[in-house]
Computed example of a mutant assay.
Amino acid sequence: MSLDSEQVEQFVRDGYLKLEGAFPADVGERCVRELWEATSCSRADPTTWTQPVIRLGGFSTPPFREAATTPALHDVFDTLVGPGRWQRLGGLGTFPVRFPSETDPGDTGWHVEASYAGPDGESRLNHRSRGRALLLLFLFSEVGPDDAPTRIRIGSHLDVPSLLEPAGDEGREWLSLCQDAVAASEHRPVTLGTGTVGDVYVCHPFLVHAGQPHRGRTPRFMAQPPLVPTGALDPYAADPSPVERAIALASQDTDRR
Rank of each mutant, 00 (worst) to 15 (best):
Q7N: 05
E9T: 14
E9N: 13
E9S: 13
F11W: 15
F11K: 15
K18S: 15
G21L: 07
F23V: 00
P24Q: 09
A25W: 10
D26K: 10
C31E: 05
L35M: 02
E37S: 09
T39K: 08
T39N: 01
P46G: 05
T48V: 09
T50Q: 14
R55W: 08
L56H: 03
T61E: 03
T61P: 00
E66A: 15
L73D: 00
V76Y: 15
F77E: 03
F77N: 02
D78E: 15
W86A: 05
Q87H: 10
L92N: 02
T94W: 02
P96E: 12
R98D: 00
F99Q: 00
T108V: 12
V112I: 15
L125R: 11
H127N: 11
R128D: 00
S129N: 09
A133K: 05
L134P: 08
P149W: 08
L158V: 11
D159G: 04
V160R: 14
E165L: 02
G168V: 07
Q179S: 01
G195M: 09
C203V: 11
H209T: 05
G211P: 04
P213I: 01
T218K: 05
R220P: 12
M222N: 08
A223F: 12
A223G: 10
Q224F: 04
P225C: 04
V228L: 09
R245N: 03
A246I: 13
A246P: 10
A248C: 07
L249V: 03
A250R: 02
